[in-house]
Design a protein around this nucleic acid. Structure first.
Lengths: 250, 250
DNA sequence: CGTAAAATTTGATCCGGATCAACCATCATC
DNA sequence: GATGATGGTTGATCCGGATCAAATTTTACG
């Protein structure tokens, strides 16, 4: 059902300030405002981390000591039952803020789904900044609301949709996040799926076999084209969108 | 699959300020701070509303014009597919804040699950208060984070748990919220289930028949005692908690 | 390149929960 | 008491997706 947890990537011991790759031109040695949608304005003692896929960033249940901005890549949040069944409960994309502020416990595992570049900083920095700037908390609140909306949308998917609808919903979700500027109701799109089949299965509450069969079916139906298992082309987004709430069998 | 939506309860037209039942002794004619866990400090133009079960408070997709504090009762948040499948994506208990601030759209239906007393106020009041007080936004953010945590916990339930585990998880969830001060890992508890079977099914992503069968099974196994379909006694919470992640068949 | 490990696909069978159907209990209204 | 309406339980059958198994493709690396 799940792959065993990999050794933890210790971002906590990397206190040496480094040049933030995303903003070095403007803030030498300090990681500052990166983009208009960047959430946190960082000050000193920031670090950049490169983590490989599957490397664990924080264990479920552990106290959050550091936070980070995602500069590049996709991060998955997942929960486990005692006997090892896994459910991915969220995906985060650049430039999301990562970590649960104000809560002492992470109640899910955080892992890199693809190669990820992070701009990391300690809890104290965040707490100091939020007390100084109400605007910062407002932005964090906005992201939390967005994540809550996505989590609830996904509850509908997990609770009431068939396998074919779940896979269509997944592709629609990924398309929106990988190509946010493009219409997700018309036209064509192309992107790399940032997850392997077992991650998709854990996100959709299905098995890898069922996910694979649904991909095959959608490919045969002409809804998607796949190359290299990861590269997806969707000729007609409207057709895909329709499939997110239409049950297809055999 | 679902019951048809009932006529909307128009809280918007009830602008007449009334005595807030929860705090009249301290703030005559104004709904003020109600309890230590009360989220919003209200000023003028507040109203009190009594809504009956199943009355619709706000439609999915509609712009949120008013917000409210829940003074008593249980409110359910639900989403629908185009063809009418329903999923309850959240339950709110007193003294939760109700409504999505800062987002122009409610993307789910809000209904009273039991009789509910609300302390309602317009969007403008909330926006004014949040700009004046960073502390208020912090409290709202806290609640949003709590709801996000619950939504993600429920994603695990919907995606990876069996019917028996889902029903046990549901009872555990309700027990925690109805009797928050009591241990939910030891001892006994008793409470009224605030939902009917069809609501439970829509919360758990199951059918009413499956929910009913699981209740019967748990009653026969001595994990619960039921009277009047709604009154539940749980002799041993530890046993219930164990069942939330242990699959039981026949 | 060759070989092993990992990831994905495909096939056959099984089973948990959905579906369809009947029945029972409670309550409101005449 | 009769009559629905609403909510809940129980039984029989069916099917979508899980499970078990094996083949195939892709990736990693000497």
């Amino acid at each position: 059902m799940i792959e065993q947890l990999k050794p933890r990537l210790d971002v906590h011991n990397s206190e040496m300030p480094v040049l933030c790759q995303a903003c070095e031109a403007r803030h030498r040695g300090i990681c500052g405002v990166l983009t208009p949608s960047q959430l946190v304005t960082l000050s000193k003692h920031t670090t950049k981390q490169v983590v490989s896929p599957e490397q664990q960033i924080a264990f479920e249940g552990e106290t959050t000591k550091r936070f980070a901005n995602i500069l590049h890549g996709v991060v998955k949040l997942s929960k486990l039952t005692a006997d090892g069944r896994q459910q991915i409960v969220g995906l985060q994309f650049a430039p999301d803020f990562m970590g649960r502020p104000f809560s002492k416990e992470n109640d899910y595992a955080v892992e890199a789904a693809t190669e990820v570049r992070l701009c990391s900083f300690p809890r104290s920095t965040l707490e100091q900044l939020t007390t100084e700037s109400p605007e910062l908390e407002h932005r964090l609140h906005q992201q939390t609301l967005k994540e809550l909306g996505e989590a609830r949308e996904w509850m509908l998917t997990l609770g009431r949709k068939s396998a074919s609808e779940r896979v269509a919903s997944f592709l629609h979700f990924i398309a929106m996040h990988i190509n946010p500027e493009v219409s997700h109701t018309h036209g064509s799109q192309q992107f790399e799926i940032p997850l392997k089949r077992s991650d998709i299965a854990d996100f959709l509450g299905l098995t890898i076999e069922t996910v694979s069969r649904q991909f095959t079916r959608m490919r045969q139906a002409g809804v998607i084209k796949i190359s290299n298992n990861r590269t997806i082309e969707i000729p007609d987004m409207a057709k895909l969108a329709a499939l997110t709430e239409t049950n297809i069998q055999d």
